[in-house]
Amino acid sequence: MASASAERAGAGPRADTGGRPVRRRGVPGPLWAVPPVAALGLVFLYPLALVVKQSFSPDAGGHSTRPWSQVFQEQSFRTALWNTVWIAAGSTAGCLVLGFVLALVIAFVPFPGGKLLSRFIDVFLAFPSFLITLALLFVYGTVGMANGLWTDATGASSGPVDFLHTPWGVLLAEVTYFTPFVMRPLLAAFSQVDTAQLEAAASLGARAPRIVRQVILPEALPSLAAGGGLVLVLCLNEFGIVLFTGAKNTTTLPTLVYSKAILDGDYPGACVVAVVSVALSVSLYGLYRALVARTTGGARRAGA
């Protein structure tokens, strides 16, 4: 970046340069950022602004808050809001517990192939979420492994497992899909834990649960919080998993946006739900970023 170094070289008060002008060449630094920011503004910010505008523009014409009051009165919206929040919170809790246990074993009770397993988890992250729901259909669906086992064993015509179309199915799928997002930062944090510290604790007679509680958990807390924050936002935004369960009675804010806009053609209503959804996710994501900046910011500053 030509501009930036030239500018830095010219910065600062200099009293006695003998009247020689500081030569600045090329484009000043901030200008280089203009093209990508402008592009993003056009295809991301401008459309978002139009969504907000549309939420105040009922189909009847003019501008009013009618779409908002309408949407807020609908039972379906309130259910979707509640579903979104509790499923996301529950999934996050599940991911944290599961991810902590699994990462703990990979990091501290190593077994052959453990490295390969963490690679597998990386691959897992590259696949779309709805594949999990698709797989769960074959495992717990009305025709599927679990019910098949039951019918094979008992001779009954149908199995007892039927929760996929309920919010619990969504919860299970989200816990499965998002757990790796918790494990990754945790594994990174665990690799920083000094093994000498663990050995010292063990030599002092501390048993494993105590070591986990008093040595490992405090060390992992920041990454646990960061991973949890990210998963919470991703769960709030999750669409594919909910769509693929095909449950009409399980709607969340994203699926409500979809059904209002595409199925009902109610754009102002969809925009209202969208604004609520964005406000919820972005504020939580802001908190998450602040948290991450707090935990890693010091190190990054020192490195700069």
Binding site: P47, V233, T255, A261, R289
Partner: peptide
Amino acid sequence: TRKVIDALFVLPVAVPSVVVGLSLLVA
């Protein structure tokens, strides 16, 4: 300036993808 650009470019992660779709549809 740095903070603003950082925030701007990670924002699409936080916004639900469905809403990104809707906004493009509207715009």
